[in-house]
Design a protein around this nucleic acid. Structure first.
Lengths: 342, 342
DNA sequence: CTCCTGTAGGCGAACGTTCGCCTAGTTGGT
DNA sequence: ACCAACTAGGCGAACGTTCGCCTACAGGAG
């Protein structure tokens, strides 16, 4: 099927090892005549090196495995794109394994990556943050870097400062004079959710406001459940004048619930999201949100992983990338209308 | 680093080939005693089979390559998820290569997949639909299935019926009595765009309306450019009472532009999108859209590819999956308010 | 005692590379 | 004319598997 070095060598009248040295290897003492013959033989036969065979002997596949929750999540997808780009830039390919929601047995997928002898693994599956069996695979067998906490430690984590995210969003609302600031969180058992909630509480405390549990509602990150959570919130406390949504998707649901209740945004109720999906610059009204550097996080994760693999260099246990408040109209102050040019 | 069959064999007191037969191979005549010894040796040493070596001899990597445009596109990401799931279900891993927008040299990425000896390639990069060099790689070297048209033919295409999509959306608007129906398209050089536009024109003709070029505006699929295109449309023709957006992202921009102009949806202007992003059930108002089966398309593409690889069976040149109109409030008729439960 | 059959497992070859060492032939110096 | 040094390329081994054939031994039938 495929042409091998043996074929090329025979066709060019040299040993296959020499052909290999010329085509794939580094500098080698070969006359420019035979070099030419080898190259043209390779071109003529359509030789494509077999990286598998190479990997077998070099003990390195130049392939990184990514185990991800679910690429339907825009944020995660963006992270993966960043990672893939950086990996390619540094000469590595990316093998991807997603973990089904239905059957969260991530051991199979991870094991499949290891069987293929990936040089390292990026874990991007918050769903697995409590999975000790996967944690064991990740700490023992193969170098890894994670987007989420891995039980037992030993795996460097790269991400953004979630506590600061919650603080930034909430402080903005407090600064605008809001007193009853509610929040719609993601699933409570997630660490991100706890961190953002802590940031929310930090900001309340800093503004001299008390954290009222009645102002906190949980969702599953979706717009639909953000919508439902907002309804519960408004039923319980009609005095709410601001809502911090723990994701932009949730925020879309919040906006639609407020609209359905006849509450104007930002006049009756201000809203802040987080993630900075491209389209939230065009919600009605445009959404103030916290920009999270997903793409850069992906790049950084790969960079960290490859450094760790290559130089056995000490890699920081934890890298947090900066987040940034993006002010738009949904909070009323300093908000700009949708910018058609961006 | 890794434990090999040789180690396991030595530890169990059998030849490495026998260990291999017991651990990875099919049925083999071995006493239950040695079988036991081999298994416990493998467990104790932590043996993990080396799929690379296996692939070298079996001439099959059980790996599928996907070359994709850009996973930031929700639709494409969803397609990839569907493909990955189906591949895993059928025992294959997925190697992914994205094509940077900046440097659209897709030959490198595709070649990298081939060097890794993937069993087949899924092309999911509409951006490459005019790239003849990539087309050559895809038709010659390795079995492929594509999401987009591949110049020269010979590569089965799986997707949805774009013409019908345009027709469905537009016919719905015509049926509601709209006479000046505009459309915001994606980039004009794309085949999808042309197909959907043809569907749009079909529906206009069927309703006895004439296709006015002044009612067509182009965008780059983004909300921002959908917003801008709508502004141009409204400037040119204030009589427009309905807009068909060629994607939901565009539709979000359309909604925001209409809102900015003080036009009520659906009373002053109806809007239909397409894709059926989860969040458009919660735009203001909820968006009527055409549901496209991205996930199923991904599954189907893999199924087709594996069938083609395995049985050398004749595979249909073209598979179109059905699309479906999802009626919500943005057209006014039969629209339901956001359903918090879904 | 020989022959046949069955069982348990060994053994060599191959897949397509990389890598380091080896060798045949040519120069150059003295 | 002899030896050293260089040049151009060959060669064997190894990476970790799979695969098919081979062998050693045991038991039973004739």
């Amino acid at each position: 099927m495929y042409v091998s070095l043996k074929d090329v060598g025979a066709h060019a009248g040299v040993s296959f090892q020499t052909a290999g040295k010329v085509l794939n290897g580094r500098a080698v003492a070969v006359s420019s005549d035979t070099r030419e013959r080898i190259h043209s033989a390779a071109a003529e036969l359509g030789y494509v090196p077999n990286v598998l065979a190479r990997s077998l002997i070099t003990q390195s596949t130049c392939t990184i495995g990514i185990v991800a929750d679910d690429l339907n999540d825009w944020a995660l997808a963006r992270f993966v794109v960043g990672a893939e780009r950086e990996a390619r830039r540094r000469g590595h390919a990316v093998l991807i394994a997603t973990v089904p929601d239905a059957d969260p047995d991530a051991e199979g997928p991870v094991r499949a990556l290891i069987e293929r002898r990936v040089d390292g693994i990026i874990a991007a599956a918050p769903k697995l943050e409590h999975d000790t069996r996967v944690a064991k695979l990740l700490t023992g067998r193969v170098p890894a870097v994670s987007l989420h906490h891995v039980p037992g430690g030993g795996v460097p984590v790269v991400g953004s400062n979630h506590r600061r995210t919650g603080r930034l969003a909430t402080a903005h609302l407090a600064r605008l004079g809001h007193r009853r600031i509610a929040t719609v969180t993601g699933p409570a058992h997630r660490r991100v959710v706890a961190s953002r909630l802590r940031g929310y509480q930090d900001a309340l405390a800093a503004a001299g406001l008390e954290a009222d549990p009645a102002l906190v509602e949980e969702s599953d990150w979706s717009s639909a459940s953000g919508h439902a959570a907002t309804m519960r919130l408004l039923d319980r406390d009609p005095e709410i004048t601001a809502i911090f949504a723990q994701s932009d998707l949730i925020a879309v649901g919040v906006l639609s619930a407020l609209h359905q209740r006849g509450l104007a945004v930002p006049d009756d109720c201000a809203v802040v999201g987080c993630d900075d999906l491209p389209l939230v610059a065009h919600t009605i009204p445009p959404l103030t949100t916290v920009h999270l550097p997903f793409y850069e996080t992906g790049e950084r994760a790969i960079a960290l992983l490859l450094d760790r693999i290559a130089q056995r260099e000490a890699v920081p246990e934890r890298v947090l990338l900066p987040v940034e408040l993006v002010v738009r109209a949904s909070c009323g102050a300093g908000g700009v209308p949708a910018d058609p040019g961006s």
